[in-house]
Amino acid sequence: MGEGVAFYLLAALILACGVAVVTVRSAVHSVIFLVASFLLVAMLYVLLHAEFLAVIQVLVYAGGIMVLYLFVVMLVNLKRAPEQRVDPRRRDRLGILVGGAVLAELVAIGLYAFMQPLPASPPAETVAGANNIERVGWLLYTDFLVPFEVASVLLLVALIGAIVLAKREL
């Protein structure tokens, strides 16, 4: 009962923050709302007894990546952006395309989850407790080793790309 109330409250807040991110005028304000929504998601993880994930969510997303976002938003002169020649119709079309893709994905996930029988919830002690961290670690380095490595290489490439773009002379 209590958990249910907390979940719906958090979910509503997350959605509200998400809406605020795309509607508020100032870019810095929308970053703040994004951080808030990340923190609320972390609370959802706590509700699921996944403390490790919650802390990592705060540490990596809220504390790390979003700080860099904020940097960029603060430093890059945003007033210059509208001057660049952007065809409004092209922007609309792009928006519809991306929105449609996300919608299709959501529908697919929903259908998939609906068709699949509910998995039996795993015994509580394997989920909660200190095992939590070990399990994440095991999964990362066994079942998901390849995606993990691919993701790290991708990040490295992005890093190099950023340096090449931003550095004036190499």
Partner: peptide, 20 residues
Amino acid sequence: NVGLLYVVSIASLGIYGTIL
């Protein structure tokens, strides 16, 4: 059970105050 990481992550949130 994740106390150490909790400290680190909360400390990293404090940066927002400074930047903002």
